[in-house]
Design a protein around this nucleic acid. Structure first.
Length: 612
DNA sequence: GCCGTCACG
DNA sequence: ACGTACGTGACGGCA
């Protein structure tokens, strides 16, 4: 990395030329200047941090370092000057922003795309997002905002948004002159950053994944957020009422059994009741002074006291009510009747997406009660939901990377992979593999993907560590290809200090040579898991781009709604079901060419439970 | 703000 | 002997 960065300072670039556009004459001059350019940085100022709720306050543009323009549109403080008419400005900017031959540069440009799309303007050719570029260069959390990047790569300390807005409600309440400088800096610095970051991407050979994968994905994610998913409020509201009633009843029953009222939601208080007052014996210690009350611990002492089972069920129901049903109702947009999640493209260190506000990547599917919740996610009238998910994508990728004979053969012959693993692991013929053998083999396969350890496997299988160690030895002797892949990957990473995925995404592994065994083991598991999880993330991203292209090509109305790591969910017009299913299968299974086949399964239904 | 807990892939 | 399965987001409690 470049270690000749300037020290923290208030140094600003010399000779900046920032202008505010307040009348049509100035706008005309700006448009004239823009015609013929090939690249422009765009930044919108808005009233809220959430793009689906935000209103536009102003737009800043820069097409040359040190030169930027701010077009105020909706500043509303007393004595605010008259500003240009929004529809008129949009029509003037449309030939530029919708021109696919002019490259758009932005910092978190998905945000600006959504804000402008709501006004009816669609940015075309989002070419460079400095936030995404920075994350590719170092996939860690929380170091990719504009002020951080400016300091790191340009040596400029920017005025923070907080310093600009102070105690005022929104940016619309701040004087145009102040905002103009801030907004122009945003556009100007974004353009300057692009010029710094592109050579770095090229040097690290990250430009291909940036231009071919991450940037095309921005528009797709933005549209998925704008699409949202329809949620049946009439299903959730009575469900919440029932759950709340049940919670009330259950807590009374528990207090009776424990002969004391306390805050059931407090792990600390619950721990005191169970392990001090009732003198139950926990299986594990805790660091923070009281014994853990987690489900796995309580499961083990379930038959020791009648309250335990009730507490587990209480937890289950409160999790549903407080963690899912209530927030989901709140997140239904009154204008659209739909929930618009937010996708975070730089949210993980492996290249997966993250979903928030609300997180729609962790909607329950396992328990009977939780599963039911998926009935609330429904299709628009005349439509159905179509779900498509990869079968065993991570194990298939492990098979590809390791070239392990048994794994490759199992996938080529479309075997039940866990059953197949059990056969070889326990050396028994197929017809003698019991459900329990299969379950054990499944835990081993999970372990392989996570960077296996005897301790972790023992926990996952509910057996002794020594026994787990023996199973791992067996696995490696029957799967020498996997063993070699793990050894080679670790060796390579110890030398280079980072791991790579199929398309060349890198993750720095800081502690791979640490003296501290705990840190080193953690680093080793990251080393094994990252290429697997990261490549799976790339495969589905490629599929999303291909699917999007085909939908456009065939002018389909089907909308992509959700991505849940190895699953895509679509809202399909009833006439398009067959053609969509075909496209989705073709694009997902042929996203990349590996030495094992990729397989998906699809489902159709009026709600998410039925479709999955 | 951090911790314990728990939902998902 | 060490002591955690990988990657996330979000809740309520507590300091």
């Amino acid at each position: 990395m470049n270690n000749k960065l300037p020290l923290i300072s208030d140094k600003k670039p010399d000779h900046v030329d920032y202008k505010t556009i307040l009348n049509e004459n100035e706008l005309n001059n700006l448009i004239k200047k823009i015609s013929g350019i090939s690249e422009i940085a765009v930044d919108t100022e808005t009233t809220s941090a959430s793009p689906t709720r935000a209103d536009l306050v102003g737009i800043s543009l820069s097409f040359k370092e040190g030169e930027a323009y701010y077009i105020p549109l909706a500043h509303r403080y007393t004595k605010a000057p008259k500003q240009l008419d929004l529809p008129m400005v949009l029509e003037r900017l449309r030939p530029v922003l919708e021109n696919p031959k002019i490259k758009k540069v932005g910092q978190n440009i998905k945000y600006d795309y959504i804000v402008l799309k709501k006004t009816g303007l669609e940015i075309k050719d989002m070419n460079f997002d400095t936030m995404i570029a920075s994350h590719l260069l170092n996939p860690v959390r929380g170091e990719h905002n504009l002020s951080h990047l400016s300091l790191k790569h340009l040596g400029y300390k920017m005025l923070s948004f907080q310093e600009l807005v102070g105690d005022k409600e929104t940016i619309a309440d701040i004087e145009i002159d102040k905002v103009a400088h801030y907004a122009c800096e945003d556009a100007d610095f974004t353009l300057r950053l692009k010029n710094k970051l592109l050579p770095l991407l090229e040097k690290e050979k990250l430009d291909k994944i940036f231009y071919d994968l991450e940037m095309p994905l921005v528009t797709i994610l933005a549209n998925m957020e704008v699409n949202g998913i329809k949620v049946d409020k009439t299903f959730l509201t009575p469900l919440l009422k029932d759950l709340k009633e049940e919670i009330g009843k259950m807590s009374e029953e528990i207090y009776t059994l424990t002969k004391e009222r306390f805050n059931l939601n407090s792990p600390q208080q619950l721990s005191r009741i169970l392990f001090k007052k009732l003198k139950l014996v926990p299986a594990k210690k805790s660091k923070t002074g009281y014994y853990s009350t987690s489900a796995s611990i309580l499961e083990e002492i379930k038959d020791k006291h009648p309250a335990i089972e009730k507490i587990l069920e209480y937890r289950n129901i409160t999790k549903l009510a407080d963690g899912f049903v209530e927030p989901l109702i709140k997140y239904i947009n009154p204008k659209t009747g739909r929930i618009h999640t937010s996708y975070f493209q730089i949210g993980t260190s492996t290249g997966r997406l993250a979903s928030s506000d609300p997180n729609l990547q962790n909607i329950p599917i396992k328990g009977t009660r939780g599963k039911n919740l998926r009935k609330a996610f429904i299709a628009e009238k005349g439509h159905v939901l179509c779900s498509a998910d990869y079968s065993q994508i991570e194990l298939r990728i492990m098979a590809h990377f390791s070239k392990d004979e048994l794994l490759i053969r199992a996938f080529k012959e479309e075997k039940d992979i866990h059953k197949d693993t059990a056969m070889h692991l326990f050396n028994i013929p197929e017809e003698e593999v019991s459900e329990d053998d299969r379950r054990k083999a499944k835990a081993v396969n999970f372990g392989i993907i996570y960077g296996i350890s005897s301790y972790g496997l023992a926990q996952g299988m509910g057996i002794k560590r020594e026994k787990a160690a023996e199973i791992i030895r067996n696995y490696f002797s029957t799967h020498p290809g996997v063993k070699k892949f793990i050894d080679d990957t670790l060796e390579d990473t110890r030398r280079k200090g980072f791991v790579t995925t199929l398309m060349g995404r890198k993750r720095k592994i800081t502690n791979i040579n640490s003296e501290n065994a705990t840190l080193r083991f953690q680093a080793e598991r990251e080393t094994i898991n990252t290429p697997i999880q990261g490549t799976a993330a790339e495969v589905i991203k490629i599929a999303m781009i291909k699917i999007n292209d085909r939908f456009k090509e065939f002018q389909l109305k089907t909308r992509m709604l959700l991505q849940i790591h190895d699953e895509l969910l679509f809202e399909v017009g009833k006439k398009e079901i067959e053609v969509v299913t075909g496209i989705v299968k073709e694009c997902m299974e042929n996203a990349v060419d590996l030495n094992i086949p990729l397989k998906i399964s699809t489902g159709i239904g009026k709600n998410w439970l039925e479709a999955h």
